[in-house]
Amino acid sequence: MADNVLSLKNLDVGFPGMTIVHDLNLDVADGAFVSLLGPSGSGKSTVLRTVAGLLPALGGRIVLEGGDITTLPPERRNVGIVFQNYALFPTMTAFENIAFALRVAKKPQAEIERRVHEVAAMAGITDQLDKKPANMSGGQQQRVAIARALVTGSRVLLFDEPLSNLDAKVRASMRQEIKRLQTELGFTAIFVTHDQEDALTMSDVIVVLNHGRIEQIGDGRTLYRKPATPFICEFIGVSNELAPPLAARLLGRDIKGRSFVRLEDVVLGAAEGIPARVNHVEFLGAYSRIDLDVEGHALSAMLIGDPLPEPGSSVSLAVRPGAAHIFAEATP
């Protein structure tokens, strides 16, 4: 990949007297789509706001395109921000919303016109420029928000959970739209979200935060296939945690620590399996979820296609070899 456009070095973020994230190190490559993923309270938004300059850094450095921006005010950092709910000014037209930063910087009118139209054309909202936010669809509002963040020539856009209040369908199309704009326009995106689908679908790199610590950094596939901690294992995808006796039975050896197995790695109807009883079958379209009782322990499996076992029937099950994730005791 190309050079790093943004680096966080030993960054401490939070509020005076209350550090939320300690000693954060992160390099973001130019043109990458990086998600900060974590449950609420994990500190992901605080990191974003510190990078944006809305909160002062408590320690460490923020380097953007080779320059130290740790102490610069927000407007001089050359990063664009797309806010939760977009924060478009309801009293201004799309044009004025986009032009806001240029007007603040006292750019000449001709330049403002040119740059707003340029960025509006890129975002595909040229014919919306005279409308006010209340008269635009959610998608159009999002494009205005992105255009507004891009207009000053920022190469790095920070997204502060912009999709958090949308329903699933709209959310999916907004995701595609953000990703499309990011690919077409080539900006670097730092995207804060608590939704793993957001992160998995759009990101090149996902940074998972929990309780102010980085749990793991990697692309979606790595996080899913090779979770570094039990937290990741439970937070991304759906896993069964195996109780020690069950783990011993299924994996054929004693396990010290915690072990997890993903739903799709539980094989039903295996030749050399352990008997289990089907408690409940949940049909979900492309696949079905089967809840089982294995010697008194609950376990779920995923089944693609028909036929489905009847509730109450018995099946034999096994774990796909090598699919279990095992974490030594020391890991919390």
Binding site: L54, P74, E75, I81, A87, F100, A101, R103, V104
Partner: peptide
């Protein structure tokens, strides 16, 4: 919504300018 002021601040608007615009 405090996000409006924050957005304006991030775009470099000074206190009085944010207030006015």
């Amino acid at each position: 919504d405090p996000a409006f002021e924050e957005a304006a601040r991030a775009m470099g608007a000074s206190g009085p300018y944010r207030f006015r615009r």
